[in-house]
């Protein structure tokens, strides 16, 4: 059982008081380009996940507290939670350093809009 602290309202609760929203930082392709989404882009958005062994960035909701979403950085092996940050924020550098190279590549790619466009 995880013990989680909501960074929004500060409440500490067990896992059942929260709701896991799955992997964070997934951009919805239709937001940027509603008319021309490729099947590949839509497939990646719907189904493809990083699923790393180790430090992971997830979305969580303070279900029985304030009802707000936030991001948590959790180790998928040891279940240790390293930190929290806002739902609109990117992971702090210190947390990103710990994370799997998959994640570092993810944010590197997001930094360069031209590279992202070429991909899709």
């Amino acid at each position: 059982m995880l013990v989680i602290t909501c960074p929004v309202c500060g409440v500490e609760g067990e896992e059942a008081d929260f709701h896991c929203g799955g992997e964070g930082h997934i951009a919805r392709p239709a937001t940027e380009n509603p008319d021309g989404i490729s099947d590949d882009a839509q497939r990646d958005y719907m189904f493809m996940r990083k699923n790393p062994k180790g430090v992971h960035f997830e979305r969580w909701r303070c279900d029985r507290g304030c009802g707000k979403w936030f991001h948590a950085c959790r180790d998928t092996v040891s279940m240790q939670i390293f930190g929290y940050y806002g739902i609109t924020q990117r992971p702090p550098a210190a947390l990103l350093k710990k994370a799997d190279p998959l994640w570092q590549a993810h944010f590197e790619a997001a930094k360069k809009p031209s590279a992202k466009k070429a991909k899709s």
């Binding site: 279900d63 029985r64 304030c66």
Partner: peptide, 9 residues
């Protein structure tokens, strides 16, 4: 305090 009480919100 909002909470989970008896399996309900």
């Amino acid at each position: 305090r909002r909470m989970l009480f008896g399996e309900i919100a």
